[in-house]
Design a protein around this nucleic acid. Structure first.
Length: 341
DNA sequence: AAGACGGGGGT
DNA sequence: ACCCCAGTCTT
């Protein structure tokens, strides 16, 4: 039974091979880069970022030497910015503590910052053909449907069950091909919505297809209730300079830049007075909305002209530099549409 | 075990 | 406008 599933999977892979950009040299550094970019991110979205990063930092030593702001500028818009921070720290660690040698086993790779079970398996199998099975969202969906397991992987115990099944199915000695095949199959064919069951060579052994349960497998994940947050965001402008500060708090958008921000639904005159800013008659944007997986962000943005304004933690940037500054997406979208005039 | 952490695509 | 998608770290 397992053999049939695997044979069909490999047959599928022959007809839908997907070239990875690191295929030529299988450099674990490049594989790591692409896998980290792909966490919680579709491949099509990650690829342009991958190309810019590899182009700019073809060797791990160059990534280690980069400034965090430069890295964030290249990461801007992709989200989950702690990935960029971990990437940077790990590049520095490998360069200085391991003489640039990327670890070569799952056990060592998973010790790296920002690398969990999925990414460690992917790197160990793609770069070194170690017999470790990946378990990502695609693999979970495929196994849930084909083997009729109506469970999410939110509980550790259930995740272990899927991981054990994935390990059993793994074709030893061909973990790179097998892992690639099952993820490709999940992302291009056994999709979350409208899977292509009519043209699937696995459907004959697929529990969900045979029992008309494709629509209900895997079961939906429990989602956290969204919290609403409101921000008033002001760019202070003096001639051609804009004052910005880097968000250092343990909060959303850590490491990104912002103007003067009051987090509140209503304008607090006292707050703006302490910032020495007169916001009377300011032209605010409408409420701009950005939905994150756990928060609903509402933001009003305005520009205020103020000569000789200064405040601790704020730094002046010439308006021409701002395209290389990482802002939250909702802010950069507003900048693209509005500009600073 | 539960919550925090961005953003994009399909319908 | 609404619904769905997806790994790692921290608490």
């Amino acid at each position: 039974m397992f053999k049939t599933f695997q044979d069909n999977l490999l047959a599928f892979y022959q007809s839908f091979p997907i070239e990875k950009p690191w295929q030529a040299d299988r450099d674990p550094y490049k594989i790591w880069l692409l896998e980290v970019l792909s966490q919680q991110t579709r491949m099509e979205q990650a690829l342009p970022y991958y190309r810019r990063l590899v182009d700019r930092f073809p060797k791990i030593e160059l990534l280690a030497d980069a400034s965090e702001d430069d890295l964030f500028a290249l990461w801007k818009g992709l989200g989950y910015y702690s990935r960029a921070r971990n990437l940077h720290n790990t590049a520095k660690y490998i360069t200085s503590e391991r003489e640039g040698q990327f670890p070569r086993t799952y056990a060592d790779i998973i010790k790296l910052n920002g690398v969990g079970p999925y990414t460690a398996s992917a790197i160990a199998s793609f770069a070194f053909r170690e017999d470790v099975a990946v378990l990502d969202g695609n693999v979970h969906r495929v196994l849930s449907r084909v083997f009729g397991i109506a469970k999410t992987i939110q509980r550790g115990q259930d995740k272990d069950e899927f991981q054990n099944l994935a390990n059993k199915l793994l074709i030893k000695g061909q973990s790179d091909i097998y892992n690639q095949a099952i993820m490709n199959f999940g992302s291009t064919h056994c999709k979350p919505q409208n899977p292509n069951c009519g043209d699937c060579n696995i459907s004959e052994i697929c529990y969900a297809y045979q029992n008309e349960k494709v629509g209900v497998l895997p079961p939906p994940k429990l989602r956290p209730i969204l919290r609403d947050r409101y921000f008033h965001f002001v760019f202070v402008k003096s001639k051609d300079n804009i004052y910005l500060r880097k968000r250092m708090e343990k909060d959303i958008w850590q490491g990104l830049y912002e103007g003067v921000v009051q987090e509140n639904k209503d304008l607090d005159v006292d707050f703006w007075q302490t910032q020495k800013l007169d916001i009377a008659g300011l032209l605010w944007s409408p409420w701009l909305k950005q939905v994150l997986s756990h928060q609903r962000i509402w933001m009003k943005i305005a520009i205020i002209e103020s000569e000789n304004w200064s405040s601790t933690n704020f730094q002046a940037f010439h308006t021409s530099e701002l395209k290389n500054i990482a802002f939250p997406r909702v802010v950069s979208k507003w900048i693209e549409a509005h500009g600073f005039d």
